[in-house]
Design a protein around this nucleic acid. Structure first.
Length: 429
RNA sequence: UCCGCGUUAGCUCAAUGGUAGAGCAUUCGGCUGUUAACCGAAGGGUUGUAGGUUCAAGUCCUACACGCGGAGCCA
């Protein structure tokens, strides 16, 4: 099987390619069929004199997205998309396509999501999902090369790590209710005590009634967890990690970034060191920019945008008021009102892409925190075991895959960053 | 849950309260180098639903449904 991406090795040869009709133009006795095969696009030229009358007639009646097999000689052609072109001598339809809904003109969001199963064939969606795949591979490579062990958490969980209000619920045989995971972090902590450095990578589920371009009910998250790392070590890793992902995509997915018309200078500046500012500094920035903000609150989306707009690369905001953060985060020994937490805010208003912290490693303190948050102590006995048997300082963070994809691709909405988005009012197709 | 905007041809959108149109798609015709090709023609509508005001409603009013954007919450 020969694919379009490999045509540079077949110049001058007569080859047979298989794919779908992306677009078609004609001019009297010459027809241009744009073939799409999942690896690229190729303009196939059908001259009336080069093919049988039947084939020429057939070329005229193929609808958009018809699947077909075409044979012809490959030549270099700077005028054509991709730089190569085929002079066709034969053509065969594999599966016909009539009245394909997604035409080469503009469409609205609702229509496109209704046809998501077809929309992924479009050039821009194709580019986004190719980049998503490269990001996933970069994530795995990064941790694998640094001696992290993949240690996935369960999807079905018995309890909430931070309360049950935002969880999807499902009946579970005689045990009553179970929930879909909203984070594998607690399980990753168990892994870190076994393997030293681990990461989990999988889908997570949030039943939050968020109806914005930055939210999905099902999204993918990668969560590294490291024994003997403090908050500074955690931030060092997060910054190296983001630089690696962005620079890898810049290097490896130039073609796709071009299709997306991404301003790559905004990505080229994503190199270490990233600015690190405390929550207090961030509040100062908000006040200097005329925002009404009270110390102790968590940042809203417009606040995050104001902060991240001060910098040309991701900014790490650390040491948040403990009250707005999760129970498992360790307090700052120098100021017990603060949690040793860090959020990484992406540039260009893409918001929080990483949330992390140093974890509470003291048994008694953790028990107090669980009680303060009115969480059921019974459920956390296994988690407390990690503090009973050889507890160590440890840290980790979670990176939202779709937000990272959206940021790197420069797309408006998270729904385009995953093949089949799940939103509060949509679970089809 | 709250706030704002929207719903007209298969799609994207027009239409002072007065005969519902255009581009794309489709079908037919023309063109030997097109790049979202172009040119000509044809078909295609219970204007989201239910009421109301008016001589007259796509347009004004009310309710509902659905969609989009945002807030809160979060990755």
């Amino acid at each position: 099987m020969i694919y379009i991406k490999d045509l540079k090795n077949h110049v001058g040869e007569t080859v047979t390619l298989k794919g779908w009709l992306f677009n078609k133009r004609s001019s009297g006795k010459v027809k241009f069929l744009i073939l799409r095969d999942g690896t690229g696009y190729l303009q196939c030229v059908v001259f009336k004199g080069n093919v049988t009358p039947e084939v020429f007639e057939l070329a005229d009646h193929m609808g958009q997205e018809t699947s077909f097999e075409i044979t012809g000689k490959i030549k270099e052609e700077p005028r054509a998309i991709g730089g190569y072109e085929m002079d066709a001598v034969d053509l065969q339809v594999i599966g016909k396509s009539e009245n394909y809904p997604i035409t080469p003109k503009e469409h609205g969001v609702e229509f496109l999501i209704d046809h998501r199963h077809l929309w992924v064939r479009s050039r821009k969606q194709y580019a986004v999902l190719k980049i998503r795949h490269r990001i996933v591979k970069a994530i795995r490579d990064f941790f694998d090369e640094r001696d992290f062990t993949l240690f996935d958490g369960p999807i079905i969980t018995p309890n909430a790590s931070e309360g049950t209000s935002t969880l999807f619920e499902t009946p579970y045989f005689d045990l009553g209710k179970a929930y879909l995971t909203q984070s594998s972090q607690l399980y990753a902590e168990a892994g870190a005590m076994a393997f030293g450095k681990v990461y989990t990578f999988g889908p997570t589920f949030r039943a939050e009634k968020s109806k914005t371009r930055r939210h999905l009910t099902e999204f993918w998250m990668v969560e590294p967890e490291m024994a003997f790392y403090d908050l500074d070590d955690d931030m060092d890793l997060a910054e190296e990690f983001l630089e690696y992902i962005v620079q890898t995509v810049l290097e490896d997915r130039k073609e796709e970034l071009k299709i997306l018309e991404r301003d790559t200078t905004k990505l080229e500046s994503v190199v270490r060191p990233f600015p690190r500012i405390s929550y207090d500094d961030a509040v100062k920035i908000l006040h200097e920019n005329g925002r009404d903000f009270e110390w102790g609150d968590d940042f809203g989306a417009p606040d995050e945008a104001t902060i991240s707009n001060q910098f040309d690369r991701p900014v790490m905001v650390h040491r948040y008021p403990a009250e707005v953060k999760a129970f498992y985060m360790k307090r700052d020994p120098e100021n017990p009102k603060l949690a040793l937490a860090v959020d990484v805010l992406a540039p260009e208003g893409y918001g929080e892409i990483i949330g992390g912290s140093q974890r509470e490693d003291d048994y008694d303190t953790l028990v107090d925190r669980i009680k303060e948050h009115d969480l059921p102590l019974d459920f956390f006995q296994w988690y407390l075991d990690l503090r009973r048997y050889g507890s160590v300082p440890h840290s980790g963070f979670g990176l939202g895959l779709e937000r990272t994809v959206a940021w790197i691709c420069g797309i408006e909405h998270l729904r385009e960053a995953i093949p089949f988005p799940r939103l509060i009012y949509r679970n089809t197709p």
